[in-house]
Write a protein that binds this DNA or RNA. Sequence first.
DNA 1: GATTTTTCTGGACAAACGTCAAGAAAAGTT
DNA 2: AACTTTTCTTGACGTTTGTCCAGAAAAATC
Lengths: 208, 208
Amino acid sequence: MTTATARRTPADKHDERRRALADSALLTLGELGYARASLREIANNSEFSHGVVHYYFQDKLELIVYCVRQYKATCVHRYDGVVADATTADGLVAAFADKLVETVVDEAPMHRLWYDLRSQSMFEESLREAVLQIDQTLEDMIWRVISTYADLAGRPPSLTPRVAYGLLDGLFQQALLGHLCGREGVLDELRTEVLELMPVLLAPQSGA
Amino acid sequence: MTTATARRTPADKHDERRRALADSALLTLGELGYARASLREIANNSEFSHGVVHYYFQDKLELIVYCVRQYKATCVHRYDGVVADATTADGLVAAFADKLVETVVDEAPMHRLWYDLRSQSMFEESLREAVLQIDQTLEDMIWRVISTYADLAGRPPSLTPRVAYGLLDGLFQQALLGHLCGREGVLDELRTEVLELMPVLLAPQSGA
DNA sequence: GATTTTTCTGGACAAACGTCAAGAAAAGTT
DNA sequence: AACTTTTCTTGACGTTTGTCCAGAAAAATC
């Protein structure tokens, strides 16, 4: 039991299983949404049986919240590369816009789930704490982009982090809906919209 | 039967009943959300029995879509007064911001329902047509404000209607969530955010 | 006022839901 | 190898759901 392979404590294994179950559940949740994804459907799309859910989670809500928190962790560093690799202000904006478009395409199920849960939290109080935390993390994520952009441009941001996040989230949500509805050109629109919006988020150029 | 009081055809009465049922259903939907509002609960909060729903609507989805369309009709002229009464650019912005704040407070249930349904439409294709139509109407509504503002200020808008709506909708949604979560100061924040954002939506002042 | 048509009620149905628990299977321990 | 603990399966439970329907009640028509 003290071999090199037995490095995991039972508690670790328990957590690992929870993570695996949540990973699998996220797929079903992203496909069906919060309301229509039943525990049986979630279990059917996993390697587990439907009873095992209550072995690792107290109830459905705890599973959902755990899933969302886990998703947050993978999502919140999506634009870190954009920030790290940026050398010019315009380059950062272009890379950021591209990454946003890429996210709409590649991560559509996860993001509609996120918007679903945020809407549900307006009705279900037990979801609000997690939602507010995630929203804050996303706001921070966006602000890292904005403040780096401001540094590169040599101009301070003209809006608060909250507003900047609200604006970009609004655009993103519209684009996601349009994309899921099959509207043509919605991705290019998002890109140009972001390219036009970003300069506005900084204070007017002093020497103009 | 040809008296003055019998001016309504049977078809009219049928429509009237549908409207009354939808009005009642909207209350329950705004309280519980799309997923948790069952037809029985909707009927219980109305003057009808749960069976009558299927007399006036084919299924739950048709009722929901009808409700949302009906809500749209009452919602889309909320800012008409603001536009009509405005005499100066700054006055319009102030009145608009006040009206937005008032809407967050007074119409929170209806608006969280709207966000709920828009999120659901990302999963349920049968909701998308109605959602896109309403979104377009809301975009038009916002654009009437923006273009009037632009006229009064003597500066053209610097963004497309789609972007303007996306931005304001993002701010509004954040404020609504914050308000429902009981966060202090969120209403004043929304007001100042809008006051700061609106000038940005117009082209830079020519003579500055 | 009788008859037809429209409107509404309340119960019944199958299906799906979250939850639970008894016991099998596997893993770990001595 | 015997035993304990952990992990998982399976079936069952009580609700709740959307939908349907037989028939009552009301309205309209003649």
